[in-house]
């Protein structure tokens, strides 16, 4: 058992380093997103998009209500 423990610790150390790095990266990605434009307090970008039937739709018209917008796709 006393031979196993150092190997186990070594193995854990190898696992622990990338996890630390990954955690930091994930955190940084979240923070990057919050720091990137548009910021909270900016006007929502006004671009032309479409309804599923193809009717053009200006995102600048999304006014007059609280609106929740979420990106998604089929996969």
């Amino acid at each position: 058992m006393r031979f196993v423990a150092p190997f186990l610790m070594l193995a854990l150390a190898f696992i622990a380093v990338p996890i630390e790095v990954q955690a930091q990266k994930m955190q940084e990605r979240e923070e990057d997103f919050l720091r990137s434009r548009p910021l909270i307090g900016d006007i929502f970008p006004d671009v032309t998009v479409y309804s599923p039937d193809g009717t053009p739709f200006k995102t600048g018209d999304l006014r007059g209500h609280y609106t929740v917008l979420t990106f998604g796709c089929l996969t």
């Binding site: 307090g41 929502f44 006014r63 609106t67 979420t70 990106f71």
Partner: peptide
Amino acid sequence: PNSEFVINPEGIIIRK
């Protein structure tokens, strides 16, 4: 890919 925004009636982003 799956970000989310809340805007207020003035069209200002208040959550992201």
